[in-house]
C-alpha cells in the first residue's frame, strides 16, 4: 500500500468521523445534505458486497465495516434522530439524475458482466457524483459552517490522494484501473471550486460563503 493511499484512507475516515461528530455534538443536521449521505450509503453497500466473499486483509475488512456502519449511522441521525433539524427544503437536488446515469454507465462499462462487477462499477460511478447534492446545497444557502467545510475538504482530499496513489502504482507496479481512475478524476474535479474557496476563506479564518 502506498503512503498516498494510506493518507487518502485516513482522510476519508477523518471526513466521516468529522461529520458524525458535528451532527452528534450540535444535535443538528442543519446544512448537511441527507441525499448525499444516502447516496454514500448506497456507494458503500454496493461496493463492499465482497466483504464476506473475498478476504484481502484485516485493514481492508475493518475499513469496509467502518465505512458501512458510519454511513448507516449518519443517515439514521439525519433522517430519524435529528430529522427536525434537517434542511430538507434546501436539499433539492434530484438523486435520480445521478443514480440512473451511474447505473446505465455501470451496465455499459464494467470489468465483467456479472452482478458483483456491475454493482462495483455502479458504486465507483455513483461515488464520483454523490457529493453534488451537498455542493448544490452549499451554493443554494450561500454558506457552510466551518466544520462542514472541513468535512468537505477531508472528503475531497481523499480522492485527490488516491490519484497520487494511482500514479505511484502505475509507475512502480504497472497497476492501472481505468474505471476507478476516470471516476476518481471526475470526483476530484467536482471539488475544484470548493477547494479554492476553502483555501481563500476558511483557512484565513472566515466562513465559507459563496458569492451570488
Amino acid at each position: 500500500m502506498t503512503l498516498f493511499r494510506l493518507a487518502g484512507d485516513l482522510s476519508h475516515v477523518l471526513a466521516i468521523l468529522l461529520l458524525l461528530y458535528k451532527i452528534w455534538t450540535t444535535k443538528s443536521a442543519a446544512g448537511i445534505s441527507g441525499k448525499t449521505q444516502l447516496m454514500f450509503c448506497m456507494v458503500y453497500v454496493t461496493r463492499y458486497l465482497d466483504l464476506f466473499t473475498s478476504f484481502i486483509s484485516v485493514y481492508n475488512s475493518t475499513m469496509k465495516v467502518l465505512f458501512i456502519s458510519a454511513s448507516v449511522a449518519t443517515v439514521y441521525l439525519i433522517y430519524f434522530k435529528f430529522k427536525a433539524t434537517y434542511d430538507g427544503n434546501h436539499d433539492t437536488f434530484r438523486m435520480e439524475f445521478v443514480i440512473v446515469p451511474a447505473l446505465i454507465l455501470a451496465l455499459i462499462w464494467n470489468y465483467a458482466f456479472t452482478f458483483f462487477e456491475i454493482s462495483w462499477a455502479f458504486s465507483i460511478f455513483l461515488e464520483a457524483v454523490a457529493i453534488l447534492p451537498q455542493l448544490f446545497m452549499v451554493t443554494k444557502t450561500g454558506e457552510a459552517e466551518n466544520i462542514t467545510s472541513h468535512y468537505l475538504f477531508a472528503l475531497g482530499s481523499y480522492r485527490a490522494l488516491y490519484i497520487l496513489n494511482w500514479i505511484d502504482r502505475y509507475y512502480f507496479e504497472g497497476h492501472w484501473d481505468p474505471i476507478a481512475v476516470t471516476a476518481g478524476i471526475v470526483q476530484t474535479v467536482l471539488y475544484g471550486d470548493f477547494f479554492y474557496l476553502y483555501f481563500t476563506r476558511v483557512i484565513k479564518g472566515r466562513k465559507l460563503q459563496v458569492l451570488p
Binding site: 500500500m1 493511499r5 484512507d9 476519508h12 465482497d50 473475498s54 484481502i56 486483509s57 481492508n60 475499513m63 469496509k64 465505512f67 470489468y111 465483467a112 462487477e117 462495483w120 488516491y162 496513489n165 497497476h175 484501473d177 474505471i179 476507478a180
Partner: peptide, 10 residues
C-alpha cells in the same frame, strides 16, 4: 486480470 480478482483498494 487483477481488476476482477481482488480489489485491494477501498
Amino acid at each position: 486480470d487483477t481488476n476482477t480478482a481482488a480489489k485491494d483498494e477501498l
